[in-house]
């Protein structure tokens, strides 16, 4: 088993009356891409800031790279590459100036550590004289990642790096993370996009400050023990309303252009017949494999 790099035990955090995290227990191992998946407001950013020593937990202990996040914050900060949720570089400085500044903050320079960022930075290097504020969303994220990497950190913490980035750039970004991982980097990353979960080695599903489950994406999906139906129809909302009065209903929810449906007794109760009886004649029902989102919704309801 690989070394544990981050260990949270019994971590809680609240802001005033709002409970951001409740009794989080989590271990993250060396060399993995660990994804924290959850909707906005689930507590992902709070968790990351706690790990990055930017917040102090109300209770519980966090150990990062063997250091205590409260006592030894200085030691952690030297070895950490952190990319906050919103774009936090100097918009009035050029690409190159931003990178040079962050390199100097950590007492290094671009030339010395160019090999660390080459894969990422080479993609935006043609625009190095451009002001950071004038970059596209995808390029901004590549620059931010370069800045987080320039001091050769032992651990990368990326808070929603792909939010607000186009699909192509998102895919490129995840490919870069994969290559970093192959070089031995440990990456803690969060995303609200369920489809990105399968690119992680392990994921934690987070909702309302609570971890619903931690496992590999495959195992999370394998634990989904319902038969999943996808229903194609023009009148999705009406169908969901009708399904919720079905005796055998477990869950019925909108998933993109489809209605996803799970039921308690798929053997005895025929959903197709039920919908027919309810007057939805022309529906296309088929069984499908669940994805992370289905698992997430399933866990959320339990």
């Amino acid at each position: 088993m690989a070394k544990t790099l981050i260990s949270c035990s019994g971590v809680s955090k609240h802001y005033g009356d709002v409970e951001a995290l409740n009794n989080i227990n989590l271990d993250i191992f060396s060399g993995e891409i660990f994804g924290v998946i959850g909707p906005d407001g689930a507590g992902k950013t709070s968790l990351f800031r706690l790990v990055a020593s930017l917040l102090i937990p109300d209770s519980g202990k966090i150990s990062v790279l063997g250091y205590d996040s409260v006592k030894d914050y200085r030691a952690i900060r030297k070895k950490l590459g952190y990319m906050p949720g919103r774009f936090s570089l100097y918009q009035d400085l050029s690409v190159e100036e931003n990178l040079a500044f962050y390199a100097s903050v950590y007492g290094t320079n671009i030339e010395k550590n160019y090999h660390l960022i080459e894969d990422v930075y080479s993609q935006i290097e043609p625009f190095k004289k451009r002001r950071a504020g004038k970059l596209s969303g995808g390029m901004k994220q590549k620059l931010a990642l370069s800045c987080a990497l320039i001091h050769s950190p032992e651990l990368l913490i990326l808070d929603e790096p792909t939010t607000g980035v186009d699909a192509v750039s998102r895919r490129e970004f995840w490919e870069m993370l994969k290559r970093l991982k192959d070089k031995g980097m440990t990456i803690l990353v969060s995303t609200p996009y369920m489809d990105e979960a399968k690119r992680c080695d392990r994921i934690a599903l987070v909702q309302n400050g609570v971890i619903l489950g931690v496992d590999t994406p495959e195992m999370v999906i394998r634990q989904f023990n319902f038969k999943l139906f996808a229903i194609r129809s023009e009148v999705r909302h009406e169908i969901i309303r009708a399904l919720r009065t079905f005796d055998s209903v477990h869950q019925a929810y909108l998933a993109g252009q489809l209605v996803h449906f799970t039921q308690v007794n798929p053997e005895t109760d025929d959903v197709e017949r039920y919908l027919m009886d309810q007057g939805f004649g022309d529906v296309d029902i088929r069984t499908i494999e669940p994805d992370i989102e289905d698992c997430f919704i399933n866990l959320m309801m339990n």
Partner: peptide
């Protein structure tokens, strides 16, 4: 406000 302080704080400065 812009959020760059967060990055400065997390650095060893």
């Amino acid at each position: 406000e812009v959020g760059t302080m967060e990055v400065l704080l997390v650095s060893p400065l």
